[in-house]
Simulated assay, not measured.
Amino acid sequence: MKKLEIKSTLTVFDTLDELPTEVASLMKKAVQARKNAYAPYSKFRVGAALELENGAIVVGNNQENAVYPSGLCAERVAIFQAGAIYPNIPIKRMAISASSDTFNVVTPIPPCGACRQSMYEYEENLKQPIELYFMGETGKVVKADSVQELLPLTFGKATLNNI
């Protein structure tokens, strides 16, 4: 038996002001998208904005439904929209912001597992890492250089091709 150690390296910015200008601008678009989220049940709003290689910006926000599994997270709304409108254009970076109608979200909120899987597959298909930036309403912003920093043990095409 041997142990497998997995490490992720993330960068933490204390405020939005520390971000490069283009990233801060993208995060502001994520914040605006968050404000338009449809979250009547959880009262938890998430906005995502992504920048494509061609310069296009695509936004998404969470969309809830009384039948909870029928809703969709902000990150997947943005990614699926990008794939529908701009197929085969790599995503350079994604900004994510979360808030609540009932409490102040001050810690950075990373994407859920389903979103990480969707982002990983987009990264894998287009053979380019996606820079991820995520935050709460205010405060620190966390950067991952790739989805693999958040999902180090991946399940993708290679896994299925080896079965």
Rank of each mutant, 00 (worst) to 15 (best):
A95G: 10
V67Y: 13
Q32T: 14
E137K: 15
D14C: 11
M27G: 07
L4W: 03
A39Y: 00
F103N: 04
D145V: 10
A114I: 07
L19R: 05
G113Y: 12
A114E: 08
K28D: 13
L153P: 01
K157L: 13
V105H: 06
T102Y: 10
T138G: 00
T21V: 15
S8H: 03
G136L: 09
A95S: 13
I163D: 01
K92N: 14
C73K: 09
P87N: 07
K143E: 10
E53N: 12
I57H: 01
Y133L: 06
K28G: 11
S42G: 08
C115E: 09
A98F: 10
D145E: 14
N54Y: 00
V67P: 00
A49I: 04
Q32N: 11
C112R: 03
V105E: 09
L26T: 06
P111V: 04
T11M: 02
E123G: 03
L151S: 04
S42E: 01
Y133T: 10
V77R: 12
A98H: 11
K140A: 12
K92L: 13
Y38C: 11
A66P: 15
Q148F: 00
G60D: 05
Y68N: 09
Y122F: 09
I85F: 01
P110E: 02
E22L: 09
E51W: 00
N125I: 03
N36Q: 13
A33D: 06
K43Y: 05
I96Q: 07
F13H: 13
A98W: 10
V12N: 01
F80I: 03
S99T: 10
P129W: 01
R93A: 15
V147F: 03
E124Y: 08
R76C: 00
A74S: 14
A74L: 02
S99M: 08
N162C: 01
Q148E: 08
E137D: 10
T138C: 01
F13C: 06
K157H: 11
G71L: 03
G55D: 04
L26M: 04
I91F: 03
L72H: 02
Y133P: 10
A33V: 05
I109K: 09
C73Q: 15
A82C: 11
V23I: 11
A37N: 04
I91N: 05
A84R: 15
A114K: 15
P129E: 00
D145I: 03
L26D: 07
A24K: 12
M119N: 06
V105K: 11
T138V: 12
L153K: 08
F80L: 13
M27N: 05
K2S: 14
I130C: 11
M135T: 15
A95N: 09
K28Q: 14
I130T: 11
Y38R: 11
K92H: 10
C112E: 00
L10C: 09
E131G: 14
N61G: 00
Q148T: 15
G71N: 08
M135A: 07
N104A: 04
S8R: 14
E137F: 08
E131V: 14
S99G: 02
A49S: 14
L10H: 09
K2H: 12
V141H: 05
V46I: 14
L26E: 05
D17Q: 12
V31F: 08
T159G: 03
T154N: 03
S8M: 01
A49C: 05
T154Q: 12
T138H: 13
Y120I: 04
S25D: 15
F134V: 07
A66T: 12
A49K: 06
S146A: 15
I130Q: 10
V142H: 02
A49D: 05
A49F: 07
E53Q: 15
A98N: 06
